[in-house]
C-alpha cells in the first residue's frame, strides 16, 4: 500500500465502513426474530434470529478484520490506542451497571420484599392480611411457593471449585501478558491457552450444575425469587464467560499470527480486562448468591 506510512501526528479517521449498518441490520433481525419467537411464530422467529446472528458474526469478522489490518499497518498512533482503551473501559463499566441491576434485585428481595412478605418490619399488615403463615427465610420461592420445593447447590462444592478456577485463570492470563511484554511467544501461547482451558472447564462445570439443578433439585428459573435471581445472575455471568472465552480464543490465534508487539497489543489488553471483569463479577456472585 502506498499510504501505509500514516503520519503519526495525525489521528487516523477511517472513511466509510459498511459494517455499522450491517451490524444494525444484524441486531434488528436478531432481536426481532427473538420477539417473534416468543410470540409463538417459532419458525419465522428462528430463521430471523439465526440470520441476524449470522450477519452479526459476519459484521464482527469484517469490522475487526478492518481494525486489525489498519493496526498491523501501523495506522494507529498512540492517541488512537488511548481511544480504544477508553472505549473498552467504559464498555466494561456499562456491563458492571447491567449486573448491578440484577444484584440490586437480589439485595432488594433479600433485604426488603421477602422480609415484608414474612411480616418483618413494615410488612406486618402485608403478612397478616395476605400471606399469614409465610415465614421469611432465604432462600425462598415466595409465599405461594412458586415452582414447588427445590434443593440448593451448596457453595462449597462446584461453586468453590469454579471460584478457584476463575481465580487461577486470572493468574494465567496475567502470566501470559507478562510473557507478551517480554516477547516470549511460546510462553504467551501456553499460558493464554491455559486460560482458555480454564474458561472452558468453568463453563462445563457450570453447565453440569444447571443440569443438576433442573433435573435433580427442581431448582429452575421458575423457582420464585430465588430461582429468578440465581439463574439470571449466574446465567448472564455464564454468557459473559462464554463471550470472554471466545474472545480469548480469537486472541490466541492473533498471538499465534504475531499480531501483537511487546508494547502495542490493545486487543490483548482489552480481552484481559474483560476477563478480569468476568472474574470479579463471579466473586460477587459466589459471595452473595452461593455463600450468604
Amino acid at each position: 500500500m502506498a499510504n501505509t506510512t500514516h503520519d503519526p501526528n495525525v489521528y487516523y479517521v477511517p472513511h466509510g465502513s459498511k459494517w455499522p449498518l450491517v451490524g444494525s441490520v444484524g441486531l434488528f433481525l436478531t432481536v426481532g426474530g427473538f420477539a417473534n419467537w416468543m410470540n409463538g411464530s417459532t419458525g419465522l422467529g428462528q430463521v430471523m434470529s439465526l440470520a441476524g446472528v449470522a450477519i452479526l458474526l459476519w459484521m464482527m469478522w469484517g469490522w475487526f478484520g478492518d481494525v486489525i489490518r489498519e493496526s498491523v499497518r501501523g495506522m494507529y498512533n498512540r492517541q488512537v490506542g488511548v481511544s480504544f482503551r477508553m472505549g473498552m473501559i467504559w464498555f466494561i463499566f456499562s456491563e458492571v451497571m447491567f449486573f448491578a441491576a440484577f444484584f440490586g434485585a437480589l439485595f432488594y428481595a433479600r433485604a426488603l420484599s421477602v422480609p415484608w412478605l414474612g411480616g418483618v418490619g413494615d410488612g406486618a399488615a402485608t403478612n397478616a392480611f395476605l400471606w399469614s403463615g409465610f415465614d421469611a427465610a432465604w432462600p425462598t420461592n415466595g409465599p405461594a411457593a412458586i415452582g414447588g420445593d427445590f434443593g440448593l447447590i451448596p457453595a462449597w462444592g462446584l461453586p468453590l471449585l469454579n471460584t478457584l478456577i476463575l481465580l487461577a485463570s486470572g493468574v494465567t492470563i496475567t502470566i501470559a501478558h507478562h510473557a507478551l511484554k517480554a516477547g516470549q511467544r511460546t510462553r504467551l501461547l501456553v499460558w493464554l491457552g491455559a486460560t482458555i482451558v480454564l474458561g472452558v472447564i468453568f463453563l462445563v462445570f457450570q453447565a453440569e450444575e444447571y443440569v443438576h439443578a433442573y433435573r435433580d433439585l427442581n431448582l429452575t428459573l421458575g423457582s420464585g425469587i430465588y430461582g429468578s435471581t440465581f439463574f439470571m445472575l449466574t446465567g448472564f455471568h455464564g454468557l459473559h464467560v462464554t463471550l470472554g472465552t471466545i474472545m480469548l480464543i480469537v486472541i490466541w490465534f492473533r498471538c499465534l499470527k504475531g499480531h501483537f508487539s511487546r508494547d502495542d497489543h490493545f486487543g490483548f489488553e482489552a480481552v484481559a480486562w474483560y476477563w478480569h471483569f468476568v472474574d470479579v463479577v463471579w466473586l460477587g456472585l459466589f459471595l452473595f448468591v452461593y455463600v450468604l
Binding site: M38, A105, Y108, A109, L112, S113, V114, W116, L117, L130, W131, T140, N141, G142, P143, A144, I146, G147, T220, L221, G222, G224, I225, Y226, G227, S228, T229, F231, M232
Partner: peptide, 17 residues
Amino acid sequence: FFATSFFNAAGGGDPVL
C-alpha cells in the same frame, strides 16, 4: 416469558422492585 418472579409477590418478588 420465562416464569421468573421478580415482580410477583407470590414468588417473593415485588412489583415495586
